[in-house]
C-alpha cells in the first residue's frame, strides 16, 4: 500500500498531538488515581484506576494541617488585591491616557513601565527588610505588594486600551452637559473598558492565587499566615513517604484553578491571542 504524502503528514500530525496529549495528561492521571487510593492499593498496582471513590486521603490532609486557614488566606489575598486592582489601575490609566502630553503624566507612565526591567529577585531582599521594619510582613503587606506590582503591567495595558477603544467625543458630551471628569469616567469610560477589566481580573487572580515567591519572602515565618502554595511547599518533606496524601493535596490545589479555567477560559485564551494577532 502506498501512503500518499498528504495522508502521511496528517498521520504525523496526529501522532505528534497524541504524544503531546499523553505527556500533558500523564502527571494529572497519576495525581488523580493516586489521590483516591490507599497506600496498600498503590503498592499492589500503582498505575491502575482506584477500586473505589475513596476520600480518606483528602480528609486526612484537611485534618492534619490548618487547611481551611490556608484556603482562607489565599482567598482573602487574591480577592482583596484584585478588587483594588480593578478600581485603581483603570483610574490611573485613564488619567494618563487623557493627559499624555503633560510632563507629569508622561513621567509617571514611563516611571511605572520601567519596572518591567526589574526582576523580582532584585527587590526581593530590600523588600523583606522594608516590610519587616514597617510591620507589614503579613497578609496586608502581601496585598499591598500585589497592588503595587500590578500597576506595572496594568497601566501599560489600560493606557493603550483606553486610547484605542474609547473615543474622547463621548466624554466631551458629558462635559458639555456640565458633568465632571469623575462622572464621565464612571458612567462612560469604565463600562466601555469592562472587557479589559475582566481579562485583568482573571489574569491577576490566577497570578496571585498561584504566586509562591512573595508569600515565601513575607509570610513564611508565621504558619497562620501561610497561603496554599506555601502550605504545599512546607509540607513537602512531611509527605515524602505518604504519597497518597501528597497527591490528594495537589488535587485540592488544582481544583479551584480548574474551575476558574473552565468558566473564564474565554478571557484567558482569547485575551491572550487577541493581543498577539494584529486586528
Amino acid at each position: 500500500m502506498i501512503i500518499r504524502p498528504k495522508a502521511a503528514t496528517l498521520l504525523l500530525r496526529l501522532a505528534f498531538l497524541i504524544i503531546g496529549l499523553v505527556l500533558v495528561l500523564f502527571p494529572f492521571y497519576i495525581t488523580v488515581v493516586t489521590a483516591f487510593k490507599t497506600p496498600q492499593e498503590s503498592t499492589q498496582n500503582f498505575f491502575a484506576l482506584p477500586s473505589s471513590f475513596n476520600l480518606d486521603n483528602f480528609r486526612t490532609v484537611i485534618q492534619r494541617a490548618n487547611y481551611w486557614r490556608f484556603v482562607f488566606n489565599s482567598t482573602v489575598i487574591s480577592v482583596v488585591s484584585v478588587c483594588f486592582i480593578a478600581v485603581l489601575i483603570p483610574m490611573a490609566s485613564y488619567a494618563i491616557a487623557r493627559n499624555f502630553n503633560k510632563r507629569y503624566y508622561k513621567t509617571l507612565y514611563y516611571f511605572i513601565i520601567m519596572g518591567i526591567f526589574i526582576p523580582f529577585q532584585v527587590i526581593m531582599l530590600p523588600l523583606s527588610i522594608s516590610m519587616r521594619r514597617s510591620g507589614l510582613n503579613n497578609i496586608t503587606g502581601v496585598i499591598l505588594f500585589y497592588i503595587g506590582v500590578s500597576f506595572m503591567k496594568g497601566v501599560f495595558l489600560f493606557t493603550n486600551y483606553i486610547r484605542t477603544t474609547v473615543p474622547i467625543e463621548l466624554e466631551e458630551s458629558v462635559y458639555i452637559d456640565g458633568g465632571s471628569v469623575a462622572r464621565a469616567y464612571f458612567s462612560i469610560v469604565y463600562p466601555l473598558i469592562m472587557p479589559m477589566v475582566a481579562t485583568i481580573v482573571v489574569l491577576d487572580f490566577l497570578w496571585i492565587w498561584n504566586d509562591f515567591m512573595v508569600p515565601l519572602i513575607l509570610l513564611n515565618r508565621n504558619p497562620s499566615n501561610w497561603t496554599l502554595p506555601l502550605f504545599q511547599y512546607n509540607f513537602k518533606t512531611q509527605y515524602t513517604f505518604e504519597y497518597n496524601l501528597a497527591f490528594a493535596s495537589y488535587i485540592m490545589s488544582i481544583l479551584p484553578v480548574l474551575l476558574v479555567y473552565i468558566f473564564a477560559q474565554k478571557y484567558i485564551v482569547s485575551g491572550l491571542t487577541s493581543g498577539a494577532v494584529k486586528s
Partner: peptide, 9 residues
C-alpha cells in the same frame, strides 16, 4: 494554569 509549586511537587 496550575501553580508551579503544585507542578513541581
Amino acid at each position: 494554569m496550575i501553580s508551579l509549586v503544585t507542578a513541581s511537587l
